[in-house]
Amino acid sequence: MIKNEKIKASEVQLTGVNGEDLGVMATTEALALAKRLKVDLVCTSLMSSPPPCKLIGAGQAKQEALQEKHQARKQEKAPKVKELRLTPHIEDHDLDTKCQQARRILQAGDAVMLVVKISGKEGSQAKALLEQIIREMAPFGTKRTGIQLSGKQAAVQLDPL
């Protein structure tokens, strides 16, 4: 955040204290206006010419910068992958409970790995079960990978929408 005398541009695009557009003016003129109003002149971006600047109260500028950092940190957080384990012979009520858990996890913004433990020739049952769950979870998430049958388990990962 560049404030007051540290702004090196010859002229700036100025926005007032209440958000009104004051137009393009010389930096010295903008600094004089800021001192007269007892506020800070804060440069919001250096990517354009003339750079956009705001007149902001002293404490408010720091608060705004902290909020921006906090928002950036929130968006940076990678989604966790939570695993739900099932069997091919799951009862209807238990399946509903697992679907509710998956729905809650997806709505919270995390991914769900559905794993069906199989033994013997239950591969087709496990695949059918996972396809049924994927259809039920369609409004809440999309599958990242196809259904993977490997050894003693079948798995699929659902990402939140």
Rank of each mutant, 00 (worst) to 15 (best):
Q71W: 11
Q71F: 11
A72M: 09
A72T: 09
R73D: 11
K74D: 01
K77S: 09
A78W: 02
P79V: 04
V81I: 09
V81Q: 09
E83T: 08
E83D: 06
E83F: 03
L84Q: 00
L84W: 01
P88N: 03
H89Q: 11
E91I: 07
H93V: 15
H93F: 15
D94W: 13
L95Q: 02
D96V: 15
Q101G: 10
Q107A: 11
Q107R: 12
G109D: 02
G109Q: 07
M113W: 11
V115H: 09
S119K: 13
G120V: 05
G120L: 08
G120T: 01
K121C: 01
G123S: 10
A126C: 05
K127D: 12
K127I: 01
A128W: 01
A128C: 00
L129M: 06
L130P: 03
I133Q: 08
F140I: 06
F140Q: 03
G141N: 06
G141Q: 02
T142G: 14
T145K: 08
G146L: 07
Q148S: 12
S150L: 14
G151N: 07
Q153W: 05
A154R: 04
V156K: 00
V156G: 05
D159P: 05
D159N: 01
D159W: 03
P160I: 01
L161S: 00
